[in-house]
């Protein structure tokens, strides 16, 4: 038995194409709805363990935070955030560059400032190594 393509194509009726199209649209919709977990929405800045700023990642902003060593500057752009400058000696948090995933953290330990990105729901409560 040989199955020609036109034999199969005869199985499609106009409405069927509509239903399949609708099904694919539903797939895209579900993917957009349920696979957004890793997208960061907020930047949370802490100093000395206390939250001092919570910035939306929708629009550019910057915030200056004072710590024991001096001023740390955090910069926010749509969808990402970074520690722009820090008085700490080793500059680790600055060298980390832009953070864009929910849960990402940059810690400026000497100045007791941290920057953390948050999604709509947190992916985990704590991490330990």
């Amino acid at each position: 038995m040989k199955l020609a393509w036109h034999e199969w194509r005869a199985g499609f009726r106009p409405g069927d194409i509509l239903v399949i199209g609708g099904g694919l649209a539903a797939c895209v919709f579900f993917a957009l709805t349920f696979w957004q977990g890793g997208v960061a929405r907020w930047a949370e800045v802490r100093a000395g363990g206390k939250v001092v700023a919570r910035l939306s990642l929708d629009r550019p902003a910057s915030v200056d935070v004072d710590g024991p060593l001096g001023q740390t500057r955090v910069q926010v752009e749509p969808g990402r955030a970074r520690v722009l400058s820090d008085p700490g000696p080793r500059q680790y948090c600055v060298l980390q560059g832009w953070l864009s995933r929910a849960g990402a953290v940059a810690i400026c330990a000497p100045n007791e400032v941290s920057l953390r990105l948050l999604g709509d729901s947190s992916a985990y409560d704590t991490l330990n190594y």
């Binding site: 199985g11 499609f12 009726r13 106009p14 239903v19």
Partner: peptide
């Protein structure tokens, strides 16, 4: 006329 077994199946 418009919807066949393919629609039903999906």
């Amino acid at each position: 006329r418009w919807f066949g077994p393919v629609s039903h199946s999906v």
